[in-house]
Amino acid sequence: MKVYEKDQKVKIHFKVNGQDVEYETEPRKLLVHALRELGFTGVHIGCDTSNCGACTVIMNGKSVKSCTVLAVEADGSEILTVEGLAKDGKLHPIQEAFWEKHALQCGYCTPGMIMEAYWLLKEKPDPTEEEIREGISGNLCRCTGYQNIVEAVKLASQKLRLGQTPYQRQ
């Protein structure tokens, strides 16, 4: 068992969007701050009580609120953020659908919302409207009233099922 003192820095290794990353951190640092410091500033902070989901990333295949994970807990994990979705400049179908359906305004919830949609569509490739709404209920949006987001997730689900772009492997 490794024991670290309060002020001692810990070296962790994880994969972000397919790239190996080494990061030195205090044990108390939140994953959301670590990711942002590493340059993944699309990961946003919207609250301090784990309600808003603006910090949502995929960690080992699951959608998690990165404000509620310590960076040290992410040691050895694989993380996908919104920056890792587009491939060779081509947008992921979820990103395309958000653009087509006007599913964002200020754009602040958008990265977390897109990652939650990514996870949801992997779990349920053909969700009903109710399942979509339930599926993104951990992600708050103040601008859109959600309807266009629901439409975008529906469109993305069609695009993905038509196999326009395969999910990238994690």
């Binding site: 500033t41 990961v43 946003h44 919104v82 947008l91 990103q95 653009w99 964002l104 754009g107 958008t110």
Partner: peptide, 19 residues
């Protein structure tokens, strides 16, 4: 017309003040 603002924001390439 689709928004000209979106391509940056859906890629997580916006620059908000904390960025």
């Amino acid at each position: 017309i689709k928004r000209i603002e979106d391509p940056r924001l859906i890629r997580g390439r916006g620059t908000y003040v904390d960025d």
